[in-house]
Amino acid sequence: MNQQALALQNLVKDFDGKRAVDRISFTARKGEILGLLGPNGAGKTTTIRMIMNIIAPDQGTIEILGRPFSNKMKDNIGYLPEERGLYRKMKVMDVLIFLGELKGLAAETIRERGRRLLKQFALDPYEHKKIEELSKGMAQKLQIIATILHQPELLILDEPFSGLDPLNIELVTAILLEKKKEGVSIILSTHLMEYAEKIVDAVVMISQGHKVLDGKLTEIKAQYGNKFIRIEYEGDSAFIAGLDYVRGYKDYGRAMEIELNDLADKNRLLKELSSRISLNAFQLTEPSLQHIFIRKVNEGAPA
């Protein structure tokens, strides 16, 4: 039994002579959430469009659920594009019926499942409203509903969190975890790494069309070790830059992530800090994905 939900081999795509995706390969395991991470313009959406056969790759191969892409498997995939819009003049349930029928569902099934999902997303009062009457966040939730309505085996979501408030991000996160529990494989592209790292099992990081990092989240974090310390403070922290046992740091003003060359220096750091600034918290922590990403990009070495 093939355990791969998705396998990309040496994917290349050029736009007007500019290489948007450069030899990207990775695999996603069945039943896991894979985070396709990177800043805006890194090539995430182009990669996903190639996976969805919307644009053809110049080189490389793509296998979905163990087979090359075919029209037949479209009913088995749920796709949420990055830029979103719906028919403004259509009613909520009519949109679901249309998109559901395109996935091969019967109108009755769609009505029944649609009502359940609308309730789950707190959109049930809008069932007979037109799309143009919904707020942006509501429309986005509706699109997520349309994406999972046909109970696909594989979900491909391009920036599912953008435009959502924290409450709705929680809601979407919960739905994704529920889907994962049902055995659905999920590919999730986002530049919001702090949300991604809460739910993803595996990570593929891309920057400027290149893959910079790839692996299981736990393994990646272990590789970077517990050499990170998170502090909350008040005062002038400029002196940190001069400490030779500090490998790097990221200052947020009232909080800071500090990476040490050697964790043994943590007491030295604590002493130094407490003598110069007022500390509110001092905590050993795993590196954030954001931090790892920045490190990787700065190293400039494609993995």
Binding site: K74, Y79, P81, E83, G85, L99, L102, K103
Partner: peptide, 17 residues
Amino acid sequence: LEEKNSRIIEILISSTN
């Protein structure tokens, strides 16, 4: 044009040809 600009077309293409 509406389908193209709102990118609904991508959803449609992910469902049919």
